[in-house]
Amino acid sequence: MLLIWRAMLLLGCVDCCLSTGQPCVVGVVGGWATLPCVDHHAEDLEMGNGTVEWRSSQGAMVHSSVSGEEPPYSGRAQLLAADRRSGDLSLRLSSITLADAQDYHCYRSTAGQQTAERLCRVCLTAAARYSEPELHRVPVPEGGDAQFSCSSSGGFPEPRVHWLLNSQRPPVDTERTHHTQDPVTGLVSVSSRLTVSVHSTQDISVSCTIENPRLNESRSSSERSYSVQAHGLGVKWVFSAALCVAVAVMVAATLCYQISLDRKSMRKSRTWTEELKGGGSSGSLEEWGGMMVDTELLDSLTETDV
Rank of each mutant, 00 (worst) to 15 (best):
G27N: 01
V228Q: 07
Y226D: 07
G112A: 11
S222R: 07
V172T: 14
H40G: 06
L18D: 00
R270A: 14
G30K: 06
E296S: 15
S109G: 10
E69D: 15
A242G: 09
A82Y: 05
H162T: 13
T177Q: 10
T201E: 11
S151C: 07
M292P: 00
V228G: 02
M292G: 08
G144L: 01
V198H: 08
A99D: 08
P183H: 06
L124A: 07
S90T: 12
V247L: 15
S269D: 03
L164F: 05
T271D: 13
P139Y: 09
I210T: 04
L45G: 01
S207D: 11
M61C: 13
L18A: 10
W163Q: 02
H199S: 12
L79W: 09
V29T: 06
T125M: 09
A126K: 01
V140P: 01
G75S: 06
V122S: 01
G30E: 05
V66K: 15
R224F: 01
D103F: 00
S151D: 03
D203S: 15
K268C: 07
V206W: 01
E142S: 15
S19Y: 02
G144P: 02
P159I: 01
A230T: 02
P23A: 06
R169M: 09
V28E: 13
L298T: 14
E142P: 07
S149E: 14
D100N: 07
D299N: 15
E53M: 08
T180G: 07
V196P: 08
W288R: 13
R270M: 13
H231M: 09
E296M: 14
G50E: 07
A146H: 05
L2Q: 02
N166H: 04
S109A: 15
N216V: 03
S225M: 12
D299T: 10
S65V: 00
G278P: 00
V138A: 05
V251N: 08
E46D: 09
S240F: 05
V196I: 14
V235K: 03
W32P: 01
L243M: 10
Q58M: 10
V306I: 15
S207R: 08
L255C: 13
Q113T: 08
L3A: 10
L35I: 06
C208H: 06
S86A: 09
L98N: 06
Q78S: 14
V238L: 11
L285K: 03
D103G: 00
V52P: 00
V198Y: 04
T304N: 09
P23G: 01
K264T: 04
K236C: 03
S220K: 12
S167W: 09
A82N: 13
D15N: 11
